[in-house]
Simulated scan of single mutants.
Amino acid sequence: MDMVFRLEIVTKQVYREIFDFETRNKAFFERVLPKRPNGYQQYDTFIVIMNTLMAEQHDGDYYMYLIRDSQGALAGRINLQITDGLSRKTGEIGYRVDEAHQGCGCASQGVKLILEEAYERYGLKKITAGAAKSNLASRRVLEKNGFIQIGVQERVMCIRQNWVDGILYQHQRRQ
């Protein structure tokens, strides 16, 4: 049976838990994602970064969610950024899943849930996402959730000191 996951909006009360999640998964994430900014692994700097993002969340420009498993463990993170500030109709998602929760539906369910939030709660009409061309698991998650490939960006992100191409995806609200 597949695990069941839920979303939880990020608050200041979970900073330490997020920091521990990021620290625990640092080496794993850096195999498939760009490195975090300098200082991200120091808790004092992490708090400053998170407070900046929380201000954007308060302003309605950026929403950070935790993906929790049925036991309440932090299984992943997923963010929604409003990308067209004036019309507020388009957003972009990004996500990362704990190494121990790989392959159990966490990312797929998280993306499904954030799409519901984006359309129902925030009234968006279109969501975009990107994945490294070589990250087949992430691309599969997006495609499974109805995202359509709309383009390729050459040398869009640096992973392990190598520039890689990215696939751009789009999802539109079904009427």
Rank of each mutant, 00 (worst) to 15 (best):
M1R: 10
D2H: 13
F5Q: 01
V10K: 06
V10N: 06
K12V: 02
K12S: 09
Q13K: 15
V14I: 15
Y15D: 12
Y15V: 07
E17N: 07
F21Y: 14
N25G: 10
V32T: 13
P34A: 07
K35E: 15
R36D: 12
N38A: 15
D44N: 15
F46D: 00
V48I: 14
N51E: 15
T52A: 14
H58P: 00
D59C: 08
D61S: 13
D61F: 11
Y62C: 06
Y63R: 10
M64T: 07
L66A: 11
L66Y: 06
D69K: 01
D69N: 10
G72N: 09
L74G: 11
I78A: 06
I78Q: 05
Q81T: 07
Q81H: 14
I82M: 09
L86R: 09
L86I: 13
L86H: 06
K89P: 04
R96W: 06
R96G: 02
V97P: 03
E99V: 11
G103W: 10
C104S: 07
C104N: 13
C106I: 09
C106P: 05
A107F: 00
A107I: 05
S108Y: 05
L113P: 00
L115Q: 14
L115A: 08
A118L: 05
Y119G: 01
E120D: 05
R121N: 12
Y122N: 06
Y122S: 01
K125C: 13
K125M: 13
K126V: 08
T128F: 02
T128G: 07
T128E: 12
G130C: 03
A131T: 09
A132N: 03
S138K: 00
S138Y: 00
S138R: 00
L142P: 00
E143L: 02
G146L: 02
Q149S: 06
Q149I: 10
E154Q: 13
E154L: 09
I159V: 14
I159C: 04
R160H: 04
Q161S: 09
Y169A: 03
Q170N: 02
H171T: 07
Q172T: 11
R174C: 08
Q175V: 12
Q175R: 09
